[in-house]
Structures are given as C-alpha cells and as structure tokens.
Design a protein around this nucleic acid. Sequence first.
DNA 1: TAATCTTCTCAGCCAATTTTCAGCCAAAAA
DNA 2: TTTTTGGCTGAAAATTGGCTGAGAAGATTA
Lengths: 226, 226
Amino acid sequence: MRILVIEDEHKIANSIKKGLQQESFAVDAIYNGTEGYDLASTEDYDLIVLDLLLPGMDGLEICKKLRDKQIHTPIIMLTAKDQVEDKVKGLNSGADDYLAKPFAFEELLARIRALARRPKNTITNTLAIEDLTLDTENFVVKRAEKMIELSKKEFSLLEYLMRHPGQILTKDQIINHVWDYDADVLPNTVEVYIGYLRKKIDNSFKNKTILIHTHRGFGYKIGSPK
Amino acid sequence: MRILVIEDEHKIANSIKKGLQQESFAVDAIYNGTEGYDLASTEDYDLIVLDLLLPGMDGLEICKKLRDKQIHTPIIMLTAKDQVEDKVKGLNSGADDYLAKPFAFEELLARIRALARRPKNTITNTLAIEDLTLDTENFVVKRAEKMIELSKKEFSLLEYLMRHPGQILTKDQIINHVWDYDADVLPNTVEVYIGYLRKKIDNSFKNKTILIHTHRGFGYKIGSPK
DNA sequence: TAATCTTCTCAGCCAATTTTCAGCCAAAAA
DNA sequence: TTTTTGGCTGAAAATTGGCTGAGAAGATTA
C-alpha cells in the first residue's frame, strides 16, 4: 500500500510519514503543491493525504486537477479547524474524506483504514486478545463477554495497544499516536490512563490473566504472558 | 446485492459508495459515462444508480442503450433539481425511479430498498424496538400503541437509528445519512434533534424504558439497555 | 397574507472526561 | 544498604461534550 503525503509543515508531514511507515505502509512525503501534484499524477499511489493550504498549488486545486485527469486515487484532505471546513466540503473538490487539524495520528489511521477497506467486508473490525475484544466500528469492548464502558481516550489507547499485541510501546509512541500532534501532555498522563484501563480490564477480573504489562524503563505491552 | 454507481462528482459517488457499503451492499463506482455503460452492460448488477449529466455518455443515453440491449436492471436516475425532472421523466428513458439532487443518503436508500423489494412484499416495513414501532411505508410511529407525531427530519433520524438498533452511531454518521450531502449542519443540530425525539418517545413515557442513549464522545444508540 | 410549523443556530449551563500534581512505593543502580 | 529513578494513584483543576431554552429564518398551510 503506497501512500503520498503532501503537506508543507515538515513537522506534521514527517510525523505522519514515520507513523505510517511504522504501520508498514510505503510513504512518500512532499512539501509543496506543485511537486506533489506531479508525483500524484505520474506515480501510482493507493492513497493521498493532502493538506488544504500549500505553497505552489493548493489542496483543492490539486484535488480537482487529479479528478479531471481521471485519477481516482482516494484522497484525505487535511484542513485547519478554522479553515471553514464546511466551505471546503461544499466546494466539491472530490476528496473522499476530511480531517481537521490538529488530529491524533490514530484518527488519520482510522480514516485510511476506512478508505482502504476495499470492496468486501474481508477485514475484521474486531480486535481480540485472549478473552478481551474491541470492536472498532461499534465502539464495544468486552472481556469474557462482559461489556466494559470506556471513555474516548481510554478506548483509543486500548485500540492502539491492541493493534500492537505483544509489542512494547513507549510512552512517547503512545502520546504521538493517541493524542493530537500538537497536544503537549506529560508522560504521567499515559500512566494515569494505563491505570484507568487496568482498573477496568484487569483488576475487575481477578481470576483472569493480567493483560496490561509494564516494562520499566521501556513502556507498556498488551498480551498474555509478561 | 451488487450495485453500480455511475456519477462523475467524486464527492457524491464516494459518499454513496461508502454509505451503501456500510449497509453491506457490494458497490462499484465509476466516474464517467462510457466506462459506466461498459460495466453495466457486461457485469451483472442488481441495481444501477445513474447520474443524468455525465462526461462521455449521459445518463439518458446509457439508460436507453441498456434497455435496447434487453438489460432490465433497475435504474435510479439522479438529476439536478433544476434539470427539469418532469421532462426527464417524460422522456421515458426506462429508469425506474428518480431522485433530485441534493438528497439525503437515507432518501436514496429508501428508493433502493423499494426497488429491491421487487419480488413481492416479502420484507416487513415496520421497524420495532420494544414497544416503539415505525412504519416506513406509512410514516406512522407509535409507542405502546399511542401515535407519535414527528416532523420529517425527526422521522428520518429515528428511522436511521432504528435500522441500526444497539449500534452506536456518531454524529458524523448521522449527519451524512440523514441530511443532504451538501448540507452543512453543526453537530449540535443532531443534539437538538435527539432532544426532540427524546421528548416525544422517552420523556412522554415516564414509566417505560429509556430507548435513546448517549455515549459521550462516541455517539447515540437506540435500544433497550444502555 | 397571516399564522403555524419546521429546521437550524446560538449561548449558557452542567456533568463527565481529561490532565496535572504531589506523595508514595518498588525496582535498579551505586 | 542507600540512593536514585520510574511508575502508580487519589484528588483537584481544567477542559470539553452534550443538553436545553430561546429565537431567527424558511417552508407550509389556512
């Protein structure tokens, strides 16, 4: 799956690129509109992440030109929150989805997954580890068939952990994925949220295996054994 | 159920595609007339959604050609409002139904359901949750046998909720389904309408179960338990 | 045309969630 | 063993999301 990111703010472009690569997509990042358009129209990408405001040629224009050229690659448009989202939508640019800045990386990932969810429902949208399940579409989390109520952040954090089972994730990684890219939260916040999750999915099931593990100095991991 | 969407405005084509897939139809979208015609005449679809104005070959022409070829796949024709609907109808192109742009997705869905209901009235058109019923054909809503008067929007929102019982629907999803695709309403509007519905179907029945539930940060859900 | 109904936005309120802080404990290092 | 560091946790503070009454604007009906 090849993805092209056209975004002039290097910080954002690179964090998107890094994040997507980590999810094993092949990513090219380009920092201005004209070059972006050239690449998009000559190379064959599976998806384009496109900033609305760009030097050279702006997002709307790129989008329209590509569609005019009968290039139907799915496009996700990034818009600054105050950039009159609605107007953009009305303008019929041909983008497939919109995402307001600043966003959490997992948010972008969710939309990419939605667009990539090609023809059939071949893709499961339920993640599972042991008897813990998380339905990404209906926002339902259960352990041993028992419903667990989570807040939005808790859910998002758990989803991130469960998409990387058995893998140690550092607090930094967690912050970069689960929180808005310009949010500026302390690592302690992650600890607090891990605490919340534990209370709900481990502590409430005393006789069950512990699923959330701390690796002191490294990070957290979800999975059966330590 | 395989559906072919022939529509050159990507925004519309894709939102239809996405919405129909969510309803678990298998959907192909094609953005120009010629290709659309080729697909429609070679592949075997159960239904075609066809825009009137298209690059390549326009909707009327496609329609006629298909009928000439003895292809009787049901066709829903999309027409811009000012495109003199009546004239189109008069032209007897062979389409089975017409829908004026811009439309709410649920509107299209209703017509698709109607056409799919072809082989006799095998399908119930009354939705029910506990003692709340909604007759999609006669636009009658009752709780505990008591009639409830709803406005058009309220009805449409309730229908959408009731077609997805027990499922959390986000405000975005709701807006995309219940409002015209180019409408540009705030999420707060959904809150307000949920409020109206609650007043009529929950608050008026103090001794009954509450049916409309909020899941803070996620969306709304209709169903018996929380 | 006036009266009424419907749709939608806005602003203020309240409650739930998110985030920080400070003190504590346990593991690792010295 | 002592010290240091990293992580845990209860509680308070800050922020956000959702609800609601009021009302403007548009649509429909009488």
